[in-house]
Design a protein around this nucleic acid. Structure first.
Length: 275
DNA sequence: CATGCCGGGGG
DNA sequence: CCCCCGGCATG
């Protein structure tokens, strides 16, 4: 699975500005690629808008869906909530109207539709001038939606943090380089510096950012949150049903432990009474 | 709870 | 390697 997405990401990647920019030096042009790959060179590039945002590394979903997926997920009443909404019920339907604001540094443009903001971001910040009609969802990270209401501005920020109790402490994120070893063959070109990226950038957008988002660029490929491993409890090839024979322990007992075979003493598979 | 032992960790 | 142990699946 990981390979699949990774592959997809790579694919979409190779079709980008990479083609013209060639492999050398100035990839400042390939901002798109850049932002995709990581945030490393971002600082010098102007892509470092994240830094200006509140550090709110609270993982929206935590480990909720985990149980749902790994364990049959039969009668899960609230899974849907986790998948689609905020863990902490927030007064959603305010009398305000939904607006979308660009999070790019010093931009802050506000538009009323997501498509508009996406277009804006693509054109203005990602440098993708129209080419390649489709959007890969990357823009999602560069804007935020908010309710326009009384205390709009302040709320704009706070809306980023789903009022989660776990909102403090060190960022539980494993940002960039966490996409495992899958397809690491293509990644090297970004690996060096990308590590220095502030963890804050992991979370930018909110809400839907964590939801339906089939493909995404490599850099953003954060682990599926702590939702993490699709099947965490997958023991290595079904453990042995366990042998029948009595082993040293049972035979000699805890006393006389010195009579056990070494393996048993080391809590390894018994070598004396094999199955 | 008791067993068996994998996966690690330290020397 | 040698020696141990945490933790977990399984009786």
């Amino acid at each position: 699975m990981d390979e699949a997405i990774a592959a997809a990401a790579l694919t979409s990647l190779s079709s980008g500005p990479m083609v013209l920019g060639a492999g050398s030096g100035s990839f400042s042009e390939a901002c798109a690629v850049n932002s995709i790959l990581s945030y490393n060179s971002g600082a010098s590039n102007g892509c470092d808008f994240y830094t200006s945002f509140p550090t709110t590394p609270s993982p929206p979903l935590q480990n909720a869906p985990l149980s749902a997926h790994s364990d049959a997920g039969l009668e899960d009443s609230d899974t849907t909530h986790f998948l689609f909404g905020d863990p902490t019920p927030r007064k959603r339907k305010n009398s305000g109207r939904l607006m979308f604001r660009c999070l790019w540094k010093n931009c802050g443009k506000v538009l009323s539709t997501s498509t508009a903001i996406q277009k804006h971001i693509r054109a203005m910040h990602l440098g993708r001038c129209g080419e390649q009609g489709h959007n890969d969802g990357e823009e999602d990270f560069y804007y935020t939606e908010m309710d326009v209401n009384v205390d709009t501005l302040t709320d704009g920020l706070s809306s980023l943090t789903p009022t989660s109790p776990t909102t403090t402490g060190p960022p539980p994120f494993l940002c960039p380089g966490s996409l495992g070893a899958a397809n690491s063959t293509e990644l090297p070109l970004i690996s060096p510096l990308s590590l220095s990226a502030p963890s804050t950038l992991c979370h930018v957008h909110t809400d839907h950012a964590y939801q339906v988002r089939p493909t995404l660029s490599i850099g953003e490929k954060r682990p599926q949150i702590l939702t993490a491993s699709p099947n965490p409890k997958q023991m290595t090839g079904t453990r042995k049903p366990r042998g029948e024979a009595k082993k040293c322990r049972k035979v000699y007992g805890m006393e006389r432990k010195e009579m056990w075979c070494t393996a048993c003493r080391w809590k390894k598979a018994c070598q004396r009474f094999i199955d």
